[in-house]
């Protein structure tokens, strides 16, 4: 039968081994692959300002982006492709709650500059290589 000492060894040994593998893979991902997949060369000042606006208003508290966030409002990863610049800026700059089908968005009333930064941010996000996410709807009537 397994002794307590062996059980302890299994725990400590396993932890160290898998932790080291995880650190190695994380390092490789972040230093080699992520810059390519996210096109870091296009990460401009405007994109960063856009991210700051996105972050400081907790947009993720209603929307998902890269599939992460809350489920109250649409996925924004491909929003530029889906809606285009005009629509997106209208929603962002609206002074009354934007509510196309009854559900209200907070009326941020962003300035033109702020809206442009967010558009840059969404455009950058939309061009990432996300390993196939979001998938094409496969039951859609063609």
């Amino acid at each position: 039968m397994l002794s307590k000492k062996q059980a302890k060894l299994f725990f400590l040994g396993g932890t160290v081994v898998f932790f080291l593998i995880f650190i190695g893979l994380s390092w490789h991902s972040l230093s080699v692959e992520v810059p390519k997949q996210t096109h870091e060369e296009n990460l401009t000042e405007a994109v960063i300002r856009g991210k700051e606006i996105f972050d400081s208003n907790n947009c993720m508290g209603c929307h998902t982006i890269l599939g992460e966030g809350a489920y109250y409002a649409p996925e924004l990863t491909k929003v530029m492709e889906r809606r285009g610049v005009g629509y997106v800026k209208a929603a962002l700059m609206s002074k009354v709650p934007w509510a196309p089908k009854g559900r209200k968005m907070v009326a941020y009333g962003f300035s033109d500059d702020e809206a442009n930064d967010l558009v840059e941010f969404f455009t950058w996000i939309g061009n990432m290589d996300l390993n196939g996410f979001p998938a094409e709807p496969d039951l859609k009537n063609k």
């Binding site: 397994l2 299994f10 898998f18 995880f22």
Partner: peptide, 30 residues
């Protein structure tokens, strides 16, 4: 306490690299 070690051993054995289930579609490698 012997079984406690086995359980937390299983936790780290699976859970550390299991973090990868959040790295499928966020711009991280395949």
């Amino acid at each position: 306490e012997k079984w406690l070690y086995v359980i937390v051993g299983l936790t780290f054995l699976s859970g550390i690299l299991g973090t990868g289930h959040h790295f499928y579609f966020i711009g991280t490698p395949k």
